[in-house]
């Protein structure tokens, strides 16, 4: 409406100043704009989008069931049919369509990644807020606990969890989540402690704002940026870790379940005769992890106040 008025007011005149139409921009929107301008971020976002779409719509995209082994008769020891019109990525030694297994594998990876991240981040953030908000002995206690978690090697812990809970997807998720708890806790705690000394916190205290309001309305929102970045990077890590645990045989007990890590394990035996069977799932892992890493790194830049104008 206002634009029309301006245009009507100056029929032959210069274009109306665009500043007048500038909407009040939020911090998030500004970061997003910077993100979209970064080619690295765009590549990452495309990779993530493809990965997520494939995972969600796997049954629609995959030409066959990932466990269907009806092509076993085409397989000879040491000779596995390569890419063809029916089987884009060939057939594995057990007579299954490799392309379909890669597609379904995305599901597994995404599921593990998201659940492990959610569990790890929630627990880590809770501990971080506790330590960062109270300081003093609460901080010391929480951080020593976190240090203990950090001192247990992740792989050892994953094996221990698998031994206790049995080989299952849940064990893998818990193992990866637990490994990530200390990372989030320490990150958030450090950031919050830094922010607690900020001028605006002193200003808020000088206005009689309550402690909890200062923590949750002032300190926490200002400390959260690195956590978001870390979350994106953690997803990348979780995908690689999930594949690693599957490679070691720590994931679900069903050996026919399509999983990138397990496909790598299976491909070990035929590495000399059919190296592509290892390269396809490997590439899938790399691309998925790369997507999250690229976006994570670009997010870090986009949200960094140093780049803010």
């Amino acid at each position: 409406m206002s634009v029309n008025e301006v245009v009507a007011g100056e029929p032959g005149g210069p274009a109306p100043a665009e500043a007048a139409a500038r909407p009040p921009s939020s911090l998030g929107r500004e970061a997003l704009r910077r993100l979209v301008r970064n080619p690295m971020a765009v590549v990452g976002m495309v990779l993530i989008a493809v990965f997520v779409l494939v995972a969600v719509f796997a049954p629609l995209i995959a030409p066959y069931s990932p466990t269907d082994n009806s092509w076993l008769d085409q397989v000879r020891p040491g000779q596995y049919p390569g890419p063809s019109a029916e089987h884009w990525l060939g057939i594995d030694p057990l007579g299954r369509d490799v392309f379909s297994r890669i597609i379904y594998g995305a599901r597994q990876s995404l599921l593990i990644g998201v659940v492990a991240l959610a569990l790890g981040a929630v627990a880590g953030i809770a501990l971080g807020v506790l330590a960062g908000a109270f300081g003093g002995w609460v901080d010391t206690t929480v951080m020593r606990f976190v240090d203990i978690m950090l001192s247990v090697p992740g792989l050892l812990f994953a094996i221990a969890v698998a031994a206790m809970l049995g080989q299952s997807l849940t064990s893998v998720m818990i193992a990866i989540a637990v490994v990530n708890v200390p990372i989030f806790a320490r990150l958030l705690r450090g950031e919050m402690l830094g922010q607690r000394g900020a001028d605006y916190v002193l200003a808020a205290r000088s206005l009689g704002i309550s402690r909890s309001a200062i923590v949750f309305r002032h300190v926490l929102p200002n400390s959260f940026t690195p956590v978001i970045v870390q979350g994106t990077l953690t997803l990348a890590l979780a995908i690689v870790e999930a594949a690693g645990l599957a490679f070691l045989g720590l994931s679900g007990s069903d050996p026919s379940a399509p999983e990138w890590g397990r496909m790598l394990t299976d491909a070990q035996d035929t590495l000399t005769s059919a190296p592509m069977l290892a390269i396809y799932p490997g590439l899938a892992i790399v691309l998925a992890a790369l997507g999250f890493t690229l976006v994570g790194e670009s997010l870090r830049e986009a949200l960094d106040p140093k780049f803010r104008r």
Partner: peptide, 14 residues
């Protein structure tokens, strides 16, 4: 109280 540095005394994300 009014503080010295208005650049840092307001919460940047609110």
């Amino acid at each position: 109280m009014i503080f010295q540095d208005p650049m840092t005394s307001l919460n940047p994300v609110v």
